[in-house]
Nucleic acid binder design. Structure first.
Lengths: 142, 142
DNA sequence: CTAAATTATATTGCACACAATATTGTTTTG
DNA sequence: CAAAACAATATTGTGTGCAATATAATTTAG
């Protein structure tokens, strides 16, 4: 049954690579005392401060079941604040603290370090982007 | 700070795609009552029955902290058995049960279904394989 | 204007992942 | 051969992910 052999799986390498990447990031992020998903939240907020849980979730494809406790941990570390909107009490607005904002400078070198360590070419980066975008499409259709 | 923008991240699409894939698999695997990581264990065992926890872990890049409870859940579902080796008492040998073996037939159609749903070409499959193999190298070097 | 539908977040429960440590068994070494 | 080193699995603790459900606030329909 050739199709069921591990070496013929398309998705397993993506699954395994994703975990490897998270670990590799971890080595850099431990200095900032954040995890990879927490770093992604910071990226979103550094780009545009003060967003709702929903807005962050849409960008990272994560739901409240994941984000609520994650954001609470980040709040406990004083990287951000969680505040109910006065306009719409259902909404929780997430804003960076001074500490969360300052981490941006320390993080600035991480992308290039990762690039170096992964020993990847610009062409391969483009190829990955093309394919992952294409594959995302199957789901975004719905 | 252009390098810290989400859209310029190389690894985020892989991370997000990996989760999407797991969910897509989930829809097929729920009929077999297994999760994606459990399905991967089955793939390994279908290919070669009776392996140690270590051997399974090396193929899937998972350690005992993940595998031990996962295998216990699969044992509880009577998909496999866990037995201490008589030769070396440290080793636990994992073997398929009749039920675990039978699932192989039901699983046979999943790869082609996934392929169809993802709407991916053979060329793209090759491209993914090439890149993921390349990127794995950075870590396997060590 | 109020009941019903919708929306935003939170909670619960389960299953990974993985680092760190513990436990037990086997090998190696002096 | 006994102590030390090593190896295989288990345990613990923390942090995701996500489905399903709950709660509370807002909007919409009639």
């Amino acid at each position: 049954m050739e199709v069921l052999k591990l070496k013929n799986q398309i998705c397993f390498p993506i699954y395994a690579l994703s975990r490897e990447i998270t670990q590799l990031y971890g080595k850099h992020l431990s200095e900032l005392d954040v995890t990879y998903p927490q770093y992604l939240v910071l990226l979103v907020l550094w780009e545009h401060d003060t967003q709702t849980v929903n807005q962050i979730g849409e960008k990272l494809f994560l739901d409240s079941g994941t984000l609520t406790p994650l954001l609470k941990r980040m709040e406990a570390k004083e990287l951000l604040t969680r505040k109910r909107s006065t306009v719409d009490e259902r909404v929780v607005e997430i804003s960076l603290t001074e500490k969360g904002l300052r981490l941006k400078d320390k993080a600035a070198c991480i992308p290039s370090q990762m690039f170096d360590e992964m020993n990847i070419t610009k062409e391969e980066v483009d190829a990955i982007r093309t394919i992952t975008n294409k594959l995302f499409a199957f789901n975004n259709k719905k």
